[in-house]
Every structure is written in C-alpha cells, then in structure tokens.
Nucleic acid binder design. Structure first.
Lengths: 116, 116
DNA sequence: AGCGAACATCGACGGTTGTCAATGTCTATG
DNA sequence: CATAGACATTGACAACCGTCGATGTTCGCT
C-alpha cells in the first residue's frame, strides 16, 4: 500500500500564514484524508505519543500493550496503520520489533493541515 | 455536542520543534482524535479548502454541492460536522447559510498534531 | 531438534460512518 | 395567504473500522 504521505506536492515554498489560494483536487484530498485517518484515532494518537516521549526514541510492541490497555493483535494492527501512513517506522531486531517516529512525518502532516 | 477543539490544554507555552515530553492521556487523545476525524475525510477537506480559497471568505451551501458532486443533504451533514469540530462557523443570512473558517481552527489543530 | 517468547496475520463480530431520498422548517416574494 | 427556494433533519442502507480470539511465523535458547 504505502500512503505517500509526504507529497508536499504543489511545490511552491511560499508561506501563507493561514489560508491558501486554490482548492485542492480530489486526489490530493484523498491522500491527505488517508494520512489523517491514520492519526484520527485515540489509540493511535497515544501510541505515537508514547513513542515520541520515549527517551530511546523507539519502543517495542510488548511495552505498548499495557499503556493502551488493548490486546497485542490490536496494537499490532494500529502500528501497521501508522507505518503504512509514513508516521512510524519498524525495525525488527531479534525477536522484538521496535517502532520509532519517521523524522518529518508528523510535522509534514501538520503543515498540510495548516495549509488547508 | 461541540467538540472543544481548542483546548491547547496542558498550558506550557514551550516550543518543542518535533516531539514532546510526556504521552497524552486518554481524554486528551479522545478529543484530539475527535477533531481530527472531522477533517480526515476527502469531502470535508475539499469543503474547507473551497471556503478557504474563496475571496469573500464565506460560501453558501448552494455553491458547495456542485464542486464536490454530492447531494445537498450530504453536504449539509459534512458542514455540520465541521462546525461541531470548531473548524467552520455558520451564519444564516436571509434564506442562505454562509460558512466561513474559524480563525485559529486549522492552525490550532496543526499545532496539536505537530506536538504529538 | 524441540520449545517458548514476540510479533504478525486471519476471520469474525458489533459499532460507526458516508450517502441518499423523503420530509420538515424558515424566509422572501407575488 | 400561498407558493417557491434554501437549507436542515430524519430514516435507511451499505461500507468501513476497531476489537478480539485463534493461529501462523520467526527467532533465541536449552
């Protein structure tokens, strides 16, 4: 799948503080909505937040199930959604899978939201 | 309902460029997710975009149905979701209803997203 | 080789969501 | 007052989503 989150597309690096110029097309709206749906969920927001707040910058699944109070398959499912959206990255090391933030992921999303 | 979008809550005005310090609680995640769900939809993103790109800053429903290609009740439903989320505001003038952007709405959301 | 631990995948179930047609409400106008 | 127009609300339906238990897969250890 891979959601192609970081299009930033239309190029021009101009800085419009609040609104923009022309309405975004159907395909742009689709991809942005798809990325936003990834974080428009309380559990996934908490997962991202926990990982972002960790000192190591990466957290394994076994340390995520307890804080959110959900089953391991459910947490695994949410993490997959976040990885597909380009917000998290997964690195398997031994038996464990470590999840970390993709550097520009969240801020890119935030920028697109602010730019309508 | 009213989603209470602009909490900005935890107060401290410190500026962490990318990540944050402590994971957000369940209630904060709930309200943020609720606000994000409002714009995590292609149609609603396009509606907001059209309104933001309008020169007058406000658009009536009759001028929104055609661009998105949906029925009037459906557009009305989406607009209500956006108003409840604190992103749009509604002003009825005569027979028409004019929708416009709430000034800090989108940027507040973007800020919260960037701050995990 | 065999076993256990960590994680992913599958199948299923209930709740939510986007959409429409039909109807209701209000306003301006003849 | 009656009529038409602009918008909101309702009810219904299909599609999607979050969750779980069960199972599969891979790795490390004895």
């Amino acid at each position: 799948m891979a959601v192609t989150l970081l299009e930033t597309t239309v190029s021009d690096a101009c800085c419009a503080p609040t609104s923009s110029r022309e309405p975004l097309g159907a395909s742009q709206a689709d991809s942005l909505a798809h990325a936003l749906k990834a974080i428009a969920d309380p559990t996934r927001l908490r997962l991202v937040s926990i990982i972002a707040a960790s000192t190591e910058g990466e957290v394994c699944v076994c340390d995520l199930t307890d804080p959110v109070g959900l089953s391991q398959p459910t947490v695994s499912h949410h993490l997959k959604v976040l990885v597909d959206a380009g917000i998290l990255s997964r690195e398997k090391r031994g038996t464990w899978a470590y999840y970390s933030l993709v550097p520009g992921g969240l801020s890119s999303l935030a920028t697109q939201v602010a730019g309508v």
